[in-house]
Amino acid sequence: MDREALKEAMKASISEVLETMFFLPLEVSEAETESPLFQVSPEKLKCASLKFQGPYTGEAIFLIPKALAGSLTADFMGRESDQIDGEDIDGTIKELLNMICGKTLSLFEAKTTFKLGIPETVNPSEVLDSFFSHKERNIALLCDAIDDQLGVRIVLDS
């Protein structure tokens, strides 16, 4: 597996999805355990997970502060923040991960087809502990938005 190529595909996909559909300019870099996102209490985070199969199988994870998830959802749906609910927020972060993961895999292996699972919301505390595990087959990226950070991780099965 060309780890560098997968990382570049992830970076390009994250930027394209968030800039095209959410008008959120950001800078993407490798995540570090000391990054502010990982100091946030799990109760203040939202998290989505998506499994995929194909030439490589694995899982993509999306981690975002609740407040940012709320404002992204309102912008995405063209509504005021008091017109959205938890279901809208969950739906938006799942869709966001679906687009990032699908785009990443398309860029990474353009000639083959991956089967994406159905995105699910997961408990952030379960994810935080393992965000940096399996370093050799794990790519964890941090996206710096204007006032906040969000994280995307892809881990391939061994």
Binding site: K103, S106, L107, E109, A110, L116
Partner: peptide, 24 residues
């Protein structure tokens, strides 16, 4: 979100009038 040519061919073979790739 599926961008592979194989998948797009599948949609068109089944009779899709078109496809739009996310993000759009």
């Amino acid at each position: 979100t599926e961008g592979s040519n194989r998948m797009i061919d599948k949609f068109m073979e089944k009779g899709a009038a078109g496809y739009i790739q996310k993000p759009f």
